[in-house]
Nucleic acid binder design. Structure first.
Lengths: 143, 143
DNA sequence: CCGGATCCGTTTCGATACTG
DNA sequence: CAGTATCGAAACGGATCCGG
């Protein structure tokens, strides 16, 4: 069972509020798969390589939906499959994630291609808009 | 600055590396206290209002030092007190934290004064440089 | 097959009491 | 003041089961 939503934030500090998403190791990995790897289904997240358990994945997906960060809907072509995509609120997390990536790559050995990292550093807003556009256009094409 | 080696269970993805700092609710609160509230001692962190336990605080401080994100040294005026301050690597986390704050304030009710939030949104690099300068100047003044 | 729910042994976390 | 030691609570991983 999931820990219920936190009625009292421990303080009104923005950072402590953001911790509901960032204070957990799995949530960000799911968002990375969703936004950068363009994974969209439960199964893809599960096989993403980091080894998340099924109950944990289900729990985090539920939380992200409750927070309005992602939405899920059944695929029109295969009704068994649920496709998740980020909402506006979810896409607005991109600047945070990009800054994280830049920081980590600067100080630790990462597997990120140097070409992509240079792109990120030199034109982060362009990169973010590109990702954002992928999802907003997909949504239009869907309707 | 030493580059730390990555634990095997994680992929080389920058985001998964950054999770060692961000995938924990307490670590960011400590960094917030350190950089924004200008707290610097164990006791100040402890009484910061969020209710961190003593062992958890000790653990996170140790981890942040091992990661080279903060350093601690005994006060020259009172040898009982250990003053912690962010390193360059720690200060480089400011962009991530600022983006987090902006995101949280945009979507949740926060206690952050509107004046400060506007400053953050409109001049985030100026704000970051200001914080950064506080610590680099303090370090010069110390020597 | 897909997206979960449930049960369970194990690990990790954190609140409290205590110490150097 | 700045931490350990202890121990119960919570989260996790893994296997299994289930409805569509």
């Amino acid at each position: 069972m999931v820990k219920k939503d936190v009625p009292e934030h421990r303080s009104g500090c923005p950072l402590s509020i953001a911790l509901e998403i960032f204070g957990d190791r799995w949530t960000l990995l799911i968002l990375r798969d969703l936004m950068f790897k363009q994974y969209s289904t439960y199964k893809e997240f599960l096989e993403s390589g980091e080894g998340i358990a099924t109950n944990v994945l289900a729990d985090r997906i539920r939380m992200l939906q409750e927070q309005g960060i992602i939405v899920g809907e059944r695929s029109t072509s295969d009704a068994r499959i649920i496709c998740y995509r980020p909402t506006q609120k979810g896409l607005d997390l991109l600047p945070v994630m990009v800054e994280m990536i830049i920081w980590a790559d600067q100080y630790e050995e990462t597997a990120a291609p140097a070409r992509i990292m240079r792109r990120l550093r030199e034109d982060r807003t362009g990169f973010i808009d590109e990702v954002r556009k992928r999802f907003t256009e997909a949504e239009k094409g869907k309707g």
